[in-house]
Design a protein around this nucleic acid. Sequence first.
DNA 1: GCTCCTATTTGCATGATGCATATATTATTG
DNA 2: CAATAATATATGCATCATGCAAATAGGAGC
Lengths: 104, 104
Amino acid sequence: MQPCLLLLLLRRSTHGYELIQSLSEFGFIEGEMDPGSVYRHLRRLEEDGLVSSEWQIQGSGPAKRLYRLTQEGEEVLAAWAQTIAGNKARMEKFLSCYEELKET
Amino acid sequence: MQPCLLLLLLRRSTHGYELIQSLSEFGFIEGEMDPGSVYRHLRRLEEDGLVSSEWQIQGSGPAKRLYRLTQEGEEVLAAWAQTIAGNKARMEKFLSCYEELKET
DNA sequence: GCTCCTATTTGCATGATGCATATATTATTG
DNA sequence: CAATAATATATGCATCATGCAAATAGGAGC
């Protein structure tokens, strides 16, 4: 979930509500996202210095908290990409092992 | 973790201690496994009827609890394979999206 | 006897996630 | 204009997987 938010913010800076919709559209995660979880993650990411935020008063609707990715956030996202590539490889191993056993 | 245990038990029936070692060898999961977690999962799988167990007194060393996969366990493992294939696809999507953004 | 390996179990803490709910502002619809 | 829906953020509580630590117990080798 954290890497998904960082990736979407690498794409472009935006606010939490739009991130919730983007997460569903992009299909990185199955199903619809829980708003509470997303906002909590964003606050946590800001605590850790991976994103920064500022209030955006202008525009329609309620005030939005606009998030953007920091330099540190980009580095952490790169590390996440490595981790995810590893997980993907492990899943492939799992699936090939399962298929092999199923044949016999 | 649960699907990994079911897969290893599809391969052959065995006991918890050997499963811990197999999990590290097979590389389904990074690093070494925590015994407490493995045994707790096995008890949980038995509660859910996905595996069955019996004490194996014979042989050297302390008594072993021999686990084997049930019919229901095989079905649940098949469902896990579907889920994992879906997760793998989502990770591929994530990585390709990340690489694309990194180029520009 | 002492230590190590095998084998299982339990307690406690943390971190991600899900569901529900509270809140305030704007847009829409009857 | 009043009621409702959509936008936008936040908090509380529960559950589940995981990790660290420690306890127990039998057998093997020095």
